[in-house]
């Protein structure tokens, strides 16, 4: 009895299913946006499971809006927004958008390079649910979002100093506050 599964190498699983679709999508993205797309990492060629589209920082909201509504793409579900800290490299941070399509059930990943101190346009206008994810990135990495309605810390206390998920933040960087955070009455107006 063969005890191995017939599931192919998991990196290639999605590629077999969506490879052609992704190719046409990447081509039409390049045709539509031109030099505003820096580069595309395609699975099979780069070490990734879905295509990674590197977009210029100023154009990210327009590209997200286009991907959400254009009939060829329809990535209508914002799965996640997060960031990574590539510390010795310049620019230092990468903001990562994970999109999912509810019509074709495929995924795509968008990435934006950000230097320390720079800010990214907010995606709240496209997906209101991006609010807390962007607040978390501000809290954890210190990346600001332009036009965000309520950019406060979300997981850490408002008095916290530093941004814990940066690579230069110590693992045990405890900060202890004697009093709890008081209710913020400005938020109730």
């Amino acid at each position: 009895m063969d005890v191995r599964t017939n599931v192919p190498n998991l990196y290639g699983e999605h590629l077999q299913k969506f490879g052609d679709l992704w190719k046409t999508q990447v081509e039409s993205l390049r045709a539509r946006w031109g030099s505003k797309i820096e580069r595309v990492d395609f699975p099979g060629e780069a070490l990734t499971d879905v295509p990674v589209v590197w977009v210029l920082r100023s154009e990210i909201v327009e590209v997200l809006r286009f991907l959400k509504s254009d009939p060829g793409f329809e990535y209508n579900f914002l799965a996640d927004i997060t960031a990574t800290d590539e510390m010795p490299e310049r620019p230092r941070f990468v903001v990562v958008y994970q999109l999912f399509s509810h019509t074709r059930f495929n995924r795509i990943r968008l990435k934006v390079k950000v230097e320390d101190g720079e800010s990214v346009p907010t995606a709240v206008d496209v997906w209101p649910g991006a609010n807390w994810a962007e607040r978390e990135i501000w809290d954890m990495f210190g990346i600001k979002f332009d036009g965000h309605p309520d950019l406060r810390r979300i997981l850490m206390d408002e008095r916290w100093e530093g941004h814990p998920l940066r690579k230069d933040y110590p693992l045990r960087g405890y900060q202890i506050f004697p009093t709890p955070q008081v209710p913020n009455e400005d938020l109730l107006k």
Binding site: Y11, T48, D49, V50, A79, D80, Q98, R109
Partner: peptide
């Protein structure tokens, strides 16, 4: 080296 976003239908929704 590489990166992947792996998801599964957890009881509450998409766990990734």
């Amino acid at each position: 080296a590489g990166e992947a976003y792996t998801t599964f239908e957890a009881s509450n929704g998409e766990l990734g």
